[in-house]
């Protein structure tokens, strides 16, 4: 699967089996479940590491720390991502998170901009997303908007993905293996909704390898990911009765 390559990003694009960020502009990642909160942010950083050189601006809305914890540099390093390449921005509110993200999207020297917002964010509307998208396209910077505990609202994003953790391949003595993810494409500009991708992160090669969704067998490393058009998974809606209890 591949998105249209209407405009290749500047810098050094690397071949990847997951060309999610091949196109600069705005992409949205939603977490399927609250326990998946760490997955979209990590996935965005992995994609950024796999697609372009340059530092990454990681904008995080402050209340995020209460629910999902604070970013842990050692954990970033353990994923094969360079913590030194991250400009970490602590936003006090949604408006400043969007402002900082916009500043980042206008800086062509950045590899990617990742904005994490928790909960419904009124300030992130059609206008704000259009601004981010335009700035990212003009400067060739991919912008990833990670939304946690929120349901999608109309936006100018190129693609909207739902991310969930995939059971990992067990290692010896039933130890959890490398992280696996399932991405389902909820919406895309070019109308390829329903694409489902299963990948595993190889921290040594700093790239994704395709895998089967079941997590028991190890597929051979193939050039193309396992993907196909399947029925999109209904999105988890936080408004519905939920057993999750918020921190604080």
């Amino acid at each position: 699967m591949s998105l249209s390559h209407s405009r290749m990003p500047e810098g050094n694009p690397r071949p990847s089996c997951l060309p999610v960020l091949a196109e600069s502009g705005l992409h949205e990642f939603f977490a399927e479940h609250e326990a998946d909160s760490a997955a979209p942010g990590a996935l965005a950083l992995m994609l950024a590491a796999g697609s372009r050189d340059g530092a990454w601006l990681w904008v995080r809305h402050e209340p995020q720390g209460r629910e999902t914890g604070l970013p842990y540099p050692s954990g970033l390093a353990e994923l094969g991502l360079s913590p030194a390449a991250v400009l970490f921005f602590r936003a006090q509110d949604v408006a400043s998170a969007l402002q900082a993200g916009l500043e980042g999207a206008r800086c062509a020297a950045l590899g990617a901009v990742i904005i994490e917002l928790r909960g419904e964010a009124k300030a992130y509307d059609l206008v704000a997303s259009r601004r981010l998208s335009l700035a990212g396209r003009t400067c060739g910077v991919p912008v990833v908007m990670v939304r946690l505990g929120a349901s999608p609202v109309p936006s100018a994003a190129h693609t909207r993905w739902q991310v969930r953790a995939l059971p990992s391949r067990p290692l010896a003595a039933k130890a959890p293996g490398p992280p696996g993810f399932e991405l389902s494409l909820l919406r895309a500009r070019n109308g390829r909704e329903g694409v489902l991708i299963h990948v595993e992160w190889d921290r040594d090669a700093r790239q994704f390898i395709p895998r089967s969704p079941l997590g028991t067998d190890l597929p051979a490393r193939r050039a193309a990911p396992v993907s196909g058009a399947v029925v999109p998974v209904p999105l988890h809606r936080p408004g519905a009765p939920d057993v999750w209890r918020h921190a604080g």
Binding site: S37, A38, G41, A42, G65, T68, G69, L70, P71, Y72, P73, S74, G75, L76, A77, E78, L79, G80, S82, P83, A84, S168, L171, A175, P176, G177, P178, P179, R203, D204
Partner: peptide
Amino acid sequence: TWPALEPGQPPARPFTLFV
């Protein structure tokens, strides 16, 4: 700088940490 990684191993430290 961060210590080098042991190849072939899964991450030993979490992505986010609770204070």
